Amino acid sequence: MLYIVGLGPGSKNLMTQEALDVIKKVHTIVGYITYIHLVESMLNGKEVITTGMRGEIKRSQKALEIAATGKDVAIISSGDAGIYGMAGLVLEVASKMDQQIDIRVVPGITASIGAAASLGAPLMNDFCHISLSDLMTPWEVIKKRVDAAAKADFVICLYNPRSKGRPNNLREALDIILQSKSENTIVGIGKDVARKHEIEKITTIRDLDVTEVNMTTIVIIGNKNTYVSNGRMITPRGYTL
């Protein structure tokens, strides 16, 4: 059996019981080295196979090869494996194999949900996820999606918002959003969610300092009704109070 396991945002406390049970019982763990470090205290006596950045295809192939021998193996992914994680790729690779392998996707808490809980309740009405990484999706396509989400006044969760290789994507995305949303729109930032140096901050589009944002940050941009009360970011569901 091959398990595709979402580890959650980074704390064992935010891992699902199913994820904990799977990691405990499997013979082999396959993962990106950074994610292996998140669960290394649970890996004593297990075979651990790691790859570096952008080794996703190799990891998927290796996990499937091991599962094909009859071993129980888990390939791990931060957050939820089905949201910008390993689930889709593993299933794609498996679909091209002659051998049928039992595969189970084990869900995890994705970054937007972890950050939202720390910030308050910003996701109480319709929201969307958009990754600003253009490694897999052309930047022109991403910009159209950002524009459409802003025009529809979705709460927008921006994944992979800014890196050394993409220092300007977040600023450009915010400029697109400002064509449809006010500069006073509430923005929540969750950095290193559920990890040792976690940071939460509530600001506005106007006052957001993009230099504070990196690849371990989730940026949640509110809708026109999102507000702050007692230090909490709140998007109303629509109840009459």
Rank of each mutant, 00 (worst) to 15 (best):
N168S: 10
E198S: 11
V155N: 01
N125M: 08
L208K: 00
I130L: 07
A111L: 09
K196I: 12
R162H: 03
D192P: 01
W139F: 05
K164I: 12
A194I: 00
T137K: 11
D175G: 09
I176D: 05
Y227E: 05
N230G: 14
A115P: 00
L158K: 01
K144A: 06
E183S: 15
G120W: 12
N230R: 14
A194S: 15
A115Y: 02
L135E: 12
N184Q: 14
R166F: 02
R145G: 05
N214Y: 14
M124K: 09
I220A: 02
V228P: 04
I186P: 00
T235Q: 00
L174P: 00
T211D: 13
A117E: 13
V187L: 04
I142N: 04
W139N: 01
A173V: 09
L208Q: 01
L158W: 05
D134A: 08
S112Y: 08
G231D: 09
I113G: 03
H129I: 15
K151V: 07
S229G: 05
R195H: 04
N225A: 09
R162V: 02
A117Q: 10
L178Q: 11
P122T: 12
T217N: 08
N184Y: 12
R145Q: 08
I109Q: 05
R145K: 06
F154N: 05
R166V: 02
L119C: 02
N160I: 02
N230P: 01
N225T: 09
N230I: 04
M124P: 02
Y227F: 15
R206A: 13
D147T: 06
D153V: 00
